[in-house]
Amino acid sequence: MFGSLVKQHSLGQTADQADWLIGEGILVPGLGEALRSMKAPGTAWKYDTQPGTMSGYQNLPDDTDPRNDNGGVHINSGIPNHAFYLAATAIGGNAWEKAGKIWYDTLTTRLTATSDFRDLAEKTIACAEDLFGAGAETAAVQSAWHSVGVLP
């Protein structure tokens, strides 16, 4: 998220102008264009299996098999990544000014090492309300988490 925001800030891009790719150009061309796509999880490279919603959540064991990705942390991160993209584009404008502030404040002051997706959803909604009131920003964050299936 914050890597993409740095890129957007450096390029002066609004949320709808950004490519929302992580690690663009890091792979040889035959493998794909980037490591992740927050806009379209699962499409960035050859073996990109990231889901964008909870319907594609991969319940992998947190064991020492390197293929299980420590319980799927790099695979299932497509879901909160996509929620951030949805919130940022719904709010509009420069993503670092509102959506970025909501997520940064939440991650640094409201979550713990054992927080789960639902905690992230609920805390970002509460944070949006604290920072911007119960208006369009908060509604956009709420809608994003509903869209990816983390909140019913």
Binding site: L31, K46, Y47, T49, Q58, L60, D65, R67, N68, D69, G72, H74, I75
Partner: peptide, 8 residues
């Protein structure tokens, strides 16, 4: 080689 991760 790069291998696919676990998954469906």
């Amino acid at each position: 080689e790069i291998e696919p991760p676990a998954g469906p």
